[in-house]
Amino acid sequence: MDFSMIFFILVAALSVGAAVGVVASRVAVHSALFLLVHFVTLAILYITLDAQFLAAAQVIIYAGGIVILILFVIMLIGSQPFTGRAGYRTWVPFAGVALGLLMVAGLAYAIVQTPLMPATLPANAGGVPEELGMFLYTQNILLVELAAVLLLVALLGALLLAKWPKAERIVN
């Protein structure tokens, strides 16, 4: 077992542990912190896959942006403790877990069927921002345009939902 393998297993274990932490935490803040750890471990794995640019993006967008936003919302609405409700069907979580395990078993089985190993070592082109940028802005320009529309939609949406209408303020 070479070093890269050991390193992968360690990071993967940390990643899975953090993922379980997100799901299992009682308090939302803890989940968010576990999520942060999880995102960072993934960024490390991206580097081992020769995707340096995406690793950086991962840290900036997910760890730096999304988790912070989630933490901000938790602070805004207050992390409420778990409140039990009558009529809650207790079988639902178990069904969810069973379904999930079934899914991972099936997927793992399918994935293990054919061993995959890159035939040739990549020329380390993919990770370099320049290559990615050229590819994105020439052959995939439509994606950029679409992403622009996507962000415009998100912007409009946030505006629409965040602005409390005047008439309503009077009612409340």
């Binding site: 990643s15 899975v16 997100v22 799901v23 794995l45 969810g96 999930g100 899914m103 793992a108 293990v112």
Partner: peptide, 17 residues
């Protein structure tokens, strides 16, 4: 891939439970 599948399933379990 298997790591990805596991994380995906853990996420799905979380959503459902």
């Amino acid at each position: 891939l298997i790591l990805g599948a596991m994380i995906f399933a853990i996420g799905a379990i979380g959503v459902l439970s």
